[in-house]
Amino acid sequence: MPADADRHRGPCPVQDAVGALGGKWAVAVVGRLARGEARFGRLRAQVTGTDGAPVSSKVLAAELRRLTEADVVARRERGAAVSYRLTPRGRALVPVLDALGEWSESGAGPPPDAA
């Protein structure tokens, strides 16, 4: 077993990364927070699915909690106001997600009708 395997939950770091972003809304949340810190209500208004439908408050809260536990997002409380921002680990994901987007737009991704 490699010396740094203890840092990963499984045998493959790529699987670990995909697991951290495994939620349906994770990429959209990270993409929005890449533009800057936002409060919950703003995130709820700006995070939409591929069909344009907004994320529900319950699902967004669960996704933010999961991304916070994965050290991708940080929760900041200032009195009654709560906001979210990317951590350094989350900011490091932005170029990776950009590259995935470019890969998909190049036609290398799955066909448009693939489920």
Rank of each mutant, 00 (worst) to 15 (best):
W25N: 11
P111W: 02
A20L: 14
L93Q: 14
V55M: 13
P13Q: 09
L64K: 11
A92M: 15
K58H: 11
A92D: 15
P95Y: 14
A115N: 00
F40N: 01
R39W: 03
A20S: 12
G10M: 02
V96E: 07
A45G: 03
A26E: 14
D51H: 09
D113P: 02
L86Y: 07
L64D: 08
L86T: 05
R85A: 10
P54C: 06
K58M: 12
A62N: 13
T50G: 15
P88S: 07
F40L: 05
R39M: 04
W103H: 07
R32V: 03
W25A: 15
D113E: 11
A5W: 02
V73K: 11
G79A: 07
L60W: 08
E37P: 02
D4H: 03
P110S: 07
D6S: 07
L86Q: 04
A115G: 01
L60F: 12
A92N: 15
G90I: 11
P88M: 06
P95N: 15
A81M: 02
W25M: 13
A5I: 04
L60M: 07
V27T: 15
G23C: 09
D98H: 12
L43S: 01
A114Y: 11
L97S: 06
R44Q: 07
A26W: 14
A114G: 05
V59D: 14
A34P: 03
G52D: 09
V73N: 13
L97A: 10
S56P: 02
G31T: 13
P111D: 03
T48N: 07
T48Y: 05
L100T: 03
R76M: 04
G10L: 06
V72N: 01
L97H: 09
E37Q: 09
A74D: 00
A92E: 15
A114Q: 11
A62E: 12
V47A: 11
A28C: 13
D71E: 03
D6C: 00
C12M: 00
A61R: 15
G10Y: 09
G10V: 06
W103L: 04
A28V: 12
L100R: 02
G22N: 06
W25I: 10
V47S: 10
L97E: 08
A26R: 10
G23V: 09
F40C: 03
G52C: 11
P88H: 06
S106W: 00
A80T: 11
G101A: 02
T68F: 11
W25V: 14
G19F: 14
G90Q: 12
L67I: 10
P54K: 07
D113Y: 08
D16A: 09
R85I: 08
R76L: 11
E63G: 09
G23H: 13
S83G: 01
E69F: 08
G52L: 10
V14N: 01
A34V: 03
K24L: 15
V47D: 10
G10F: 08
G31N: 13
